[in-house]
Amino acid sequence: MSGTILYYSVVGAQVALVAAMACAVIRMIIGPRAQDRVLAFDAASICTMLIFVTQGMRTGNVFFFEGALVISALAFVATVALAKFLMRGEVIE
């Protein structure tokens, strides 16, 4: 009983998160400007991180949690560097 409920809700959440990621990727492709693409990249990486967390719940494996942490850390650094680049044309001032 509880296995069925949880299985379908985890899979449903994963489908919703993949759809959210697809929206972000479409925005990343159509732009229209560079800041839109960077914002969409940030949103897509958050979706990836959440998909990892749900996958960890589905398999009961704790290593997906660490993968999620690494993804969010890398995405943060990448977004900050891109935003700094948009601001001045240089990453390190």
């Binding site: 949880l6 809700s9 985890v10 449903g12 959440a13 759809a19 959210a20 929206c23 969409a40 959440l50």
Partner: peptide, 22 residues
Amino acid sequence: ALLVAALLVIGAGLTLIGAVGL
């Protein structure tokens, strides 16, 4: 199980609405 399912649906739903807004 119901509590976890509800939290999952709320979280994933809000993320999807945000992406649709994007």
